[in-house]
Write a protein that binds this DNA or RNA. Structure first.
Lengths: 186, 186
DNA sequence: GTCTATAGCTGGATAGAC
DNA sequence: GTCTATCCAGCTATAGAC
């Protein structure tokens, strides 16, 4: 999916990777949509776990920002959204999990916002949730698909300035800025 | 492209829409990539014209925000980005036009920012350019592909509050809020 | 320019032997 | 479970008549 898009994930290629015959893919998953849903379910499970850990940490905003900027993550997410857009059989399930992940993130944001006395009139947690997702995903797409990074560093700096005002410097244990330097293969 | 994605745009289907034989598509465009590039070139031309008009208007931020939120526009843009991601033959050209459009938008933002005395340290025009694109595109994708709109109204309100502080109310002649209520078919 | 014909490929999915 | 064999569909692209 990362290298050539969901449309390139065929029973023949999947089987070749596993050194098996294509028919076995249908034996285990029946249709290709079932296969995609299985991949997606595992991904959602891991993602929710990791998001919960991030939100429970001492720097939830830093943790979530770093996590959501992982280039492999944004690229895969976009593939699943494209898949949902064109295959109605998987759309409902992908939409439901996105909604769930969003709502847990929103819940997790309330605590740091109250703790740091953010003026909810000026920047409500719900807006901040949407903004962080928008920015990380947009930067990931633009760099990953087109190789563009004009204005990215400034925008990352802007967002991190905001997080720094709330949570202070990223703590030492925290993963470093992944940034556009990482490629999809990492 | 809007209904079923770029992969569904085949010579057979294109010909059927025009009530012609599939071979004529190859006569006029040789390969399908050539066809996509032709569509893209026309789109870029119209888009740049419209963006230039928006930036030259008396409310450039309102105009650009409304324009960039057009659901058909964001959906098509995402299809072309997905196309670029998977077909290296078109990637270079799409990336070049995106970069050009971005740079003209940035140039156009400098005037209103100076005019309204925005503190460039707090919010540089370059960051604002990336932010507006991120938000409009993310909302468009999420609503268009998954039907989700949690937090969208609040985020739109947040952005428009910012624009309102700079340019005042949207003037009467300006198109109304297109919003998530518009569907792809409009 | 537009048509018929066709080559050559890739794909999803099933049937049935073992 | 895993295999062979196979069907049927869809696609891009070219050749050549008119």
């Amino acid at each position: 999916m990362l290298e050539a898009g969901y449309a390139a994930v065929t029973s023949r290629r999947v089987a070749a990777k596993a050194q098996l015959e294509p028919q076995l893919v249908h034996y285990y998953f029946r249709t290709m949509d079932d296969l995609f849903l299985a991949i997606h379910r595992r991904r959602v499970e891991e993602g929710l776990e990791r998001q919960t850990r991030a939100l429970a940490s001492d720097q939830p905003l830093w943790a979530l920002w770093d996590y959501s900027r992982d280039p492999r993550g944004t690229a895969l997410t976009m593939e699943f959204i494209a898949l949902a857009n064109h295959r109605k059989a998987v759309r409902a399930e992908i939409a439901a999990s996105a909604e769930r992940s969003w709502s847990e993130q929103l819940n997790g944001f309330r605590r740091p916002f109250e703790q740091h006395d953010v003026d909810a009139g000026a920047l409500p947690p719900v807006v901040c949730t949407v903004l962080l997702s928008s920015i990380s995903r947009f930067l990931g797409i633009e760099y990953g698909a087109l190789g563009l990074s004009s204005g990215h560093a400034e925008t990352v700096g802007f967002v991190e300035g905001f997080i720094r005002r709330l949570e202070g410097e990223r703590s030492a244990g925290r993963a470093n800025e992944p940034g556009p330097a990482l490629t999809l293969g990492d």
